[in-house]
């Protein structure tokens, strides 16, 4: 009998055999993550409590000044609230426009399905910068939308850029592929036979959707929403370009403080706050997953 066959027969031996292999496979990624993620985050945490002179040079001492500033200045509270609210709106919009696409993709088969999948995922091949410029061409005062409106007799262009509207539209489109892919993964456990069973039991299509399809796709919705929210709150290129410096969000502020004002401790403090928001979102996701079983 081969070793594999033996380990299949006795489950206890299999456990002993499998665990070290799984651990060994985890070693490289653990090392990469330590160097590439844990260390920089620790560095940020240290930076946020470092003392600096007004010139920006570090003294080597410690200071809670930036944390105090962030905690007491209403600007930063508003910044936090703005960012969370905008990201939530973007998440909700992305979910609303992605769900029908994901459901349709889930139901399609063969070549058509593959073609659609490529169409859904291919935007990710383009940098967000390029896609944002695309949106500028559409949303600006001389853009496609406003040209159309003017041709139809509008007297003044509608402001679609350099405000939250533009940022929301742009980020929603840019984040859709992530949401669709997450929803598709979640819809995988939706057996068409189960929908048929509901139909034969007297459920019209809309009740099949409400009672069967929607509840069974909740894990995908939760995962897609988490991904979209996290990506929305941490993105800064699109808010920067479509917001034109008039939209203040956490991520753009981190960039400004680090690259323009050169106040690294403040940038570090705000970064840690973004990280805390991630933590809250992740904890919430865990709770939702548990509650939907």
């Amino acid at each position: 009998m081969t070793a594999a066959a033996i380990s299949k027969v006795s489950g206890r031996d299999a456990d002993f055999g499998a665990a070290p292999i799984a651990l060994m496979l985890l070693v490289p990624i653990t090392i990469v993550n330590l160097i590439g993620f844990v260390l920089p985050v620790a560095n940020l945490a240290i930076l946020s409590v470092s003392e600096v002179r007004s010139s920006g040079a570090m003294t080597g001492g410690w200071s809670m000044a930036k944390w105090l500033l962030v905690a007491t200045d209403p600007f930063y509270w508003e910044l936090l609230w703005n960012s969370v609210r905008t990201s939530l709106v973007i998440t909700a919009l992305t979910l609303a426009v992605s769900y029908p696409i994901a459901l349709y993709l889930h139901r399609s088969t063969g070549l058509w399905r593959n073609a659609l999948l490529v169409m859904v995922i291919s935007p990710l091949l383009l940098s967000a910068v390029v896609r944002t410029y695309g949106w500028i061409a559409i949303l600006s005062d001389q853009g496609l939308v406003n040209q159309g409106l003017m041709a139809l007799g509008a007297s003044e262009p509608v402001r679609l850029m350099f405000n939250l509207t533009g940022v929301t539209i742009g980020l929603t489109e840019i984040l859709m592929p992530y949401m669709i892919v997450a929803l598709l993964a979640g819809l995988g456990r939706l057996d068409p036979r189960v929908e048929e069973a509901a139909a034969t039991l007297g459920a019209p299509p809309w009740r099949v959707f409400v009672r069967i399809v929607l509840p069974l796709s909740l894990p995908g919705i939760a995962l897609g929403s988490l991904l979209t929210f996290v990506l929305a709150i941490s993105s800064f290129i699109t808010p920067k370009l479509l917001g034109g410096g008039r939209v203040f969000l956490l991520a753009t502020e981190v960039y400004d403080q680090a690259m323009v004002t050169l106040d690294w401790p403040l940038a570090a403090t705000l970064s840690i706050i973004v990280l805390l928001v991630f933590g809250v979102a992740l904890a919430l996701y865990g709770r939702i997953l548990r509650s939907i079983g």
């Binding site: 036979r193 069973a197 509901a198 039991l201 459920a203």
Partner: peptide, 27 residues
């Protein structure tokens, strides 16, 4: 199908995985 008043028992059972047994039967 939802207006045909027929009962169908599937090979794969096709129970509603997110509902209890009582909820399945009550559907």
């Amino acid at each position: 199908p939802h207006k045909r008043d027929m009962g169908l028992v599937f090979q794969s059972y096709a129970l509603f995985p997110h509902m209890t047994i009582a909820q399945n039967v009550a559907f």
